[in-house]
Amino acid sequence: MAAKKPKNTMISHGIAAQNRKARHDYAIGETVEAGLVLKGPEVKSLRHGRATLTEAWAGERDGELWLFNAYIPEYQGGVLSRFEPRAPRKLLLHKRQIRQLLGAITREGATLVPLNVHFNDRGRAKVTLGVGTGRKKEDKRHAIAERDWQRSKARLLRNKGKGDY
């Protein structure tokens, strides 16, 4: 059983929020890392690891990419500034990358799925976006069967060298 982290721990670098269901629901092609425009209390809340990306998606608004429906709860540390927990947040990318991603969305009918929010080595909040196409139910079953087989195969190979003596 994994050890629980203390409640007052803050994340200085590493993953703050993860969308674990995204790789199950979508076949992810290429991934890209984008900066995220946040207010101070939002960063503090993220550092406590309280954000949720399960219903989040990225899309275009006025020629820019935005992160929609990501839930970052209000920071409870005595700060009076309020913000909307599900407000759209601007993503920071080069114009060429934005054009490339928007082209993939329109041509291929793909979706920009946020995979995780993390802090890089410099302490900046970043979002990993994946260009994904939706999976059908049978594709999901096949992916689960393949993952289970890989896990069983690794277990068999690991236990092969150990004898019952």
Rank of each mutant, 00 (worst) to 15 (best):
R50Q: 04
L67A: 04
A104V: 03
L67F: 04
W149A: 10
V117D: 00
A51L: 03
L65E: 04
R50I: 00
D139F: 02
A145T: 14
T106I: 09
G134Y: 05
T54Y: 05
E64V: 11
N120F: 05
G59I: 13
G49C: 01
P85Q: 03
G59L: 10
F68M: 08
R124H: 06
R151T: 09
Q100L: 11
G63E: 06
K126Y: 06
E84L: 10
Q150S: 11
L112S: 08
R107L: 13
A70S: 12
G134H: 07
H118N: 03
A145N: 12
A87V: 09
Y71W: 09
I105C: 14
A56R: 07
G49F: 00
E74W: 02
S152L: 11
T111D: 15
P73H: 01
G123F: 05
G63F: 03
L67S: 05
R147D: 11
L80H: 10
P88A: 15
Q150P: 03
W66H: 09
H118Q: 05
T128M: 07
E108Y: 14
K90I: 00
K95R: 15
R86M: 11
F83K: 07
T111C: 14
D62N: 13
I144V: 14
Y75G: 00
L157V: 07
W66P: 02
R89M: 04
W66K: 07
L80I: 08
N116W: 01
T111I: 11
V117Y: 03
V79W: 12
A87K: 15
Q100T: 08
V113Q: 08
R99A: 14
R86A: 10
A125Q: 00
G49S: 01
L93S: 03
P73G: 05
A70R: 07
D121V: 07
E74F: 02
P88S: 15
S152I: 10
T54C: 03
Y71H: 12
I98C: 05
G130P: 05
H142D: 11
R82Q: 15
E108A: 13
K44A: 01
L93I: 07
K126R: 15
S152T: 09
P114I: 04
T111E: 15
R141S: 09
V43C: 06
A104F: 10
H142Q: 14
K160I: 14
F119W: 03
T106F: 10
G103W: 02
E138P: 05
I105T: 15
E74C: 03
K153H: 13
H142T: 12
R47A: 01
T133K: 14
N159P: 00
W149C: 03
L91F: 11
L91V: 07
H94Q: 11
I98V: 15
R82C: 04
E138S: 15
F83D: 08
A51P: 02
K160S: 11
A110H: 13
R158T: 10
K126F: 06
L91P: 05
T128E: 15
D139M: 09
T52Y: 12
G103I: 00
P114M: 08
L91A: 06
Q97I: 08
G63Q: 04
A110W: 10
L101Y: 11
R147K: 12
K90V: 00
H142F: 08
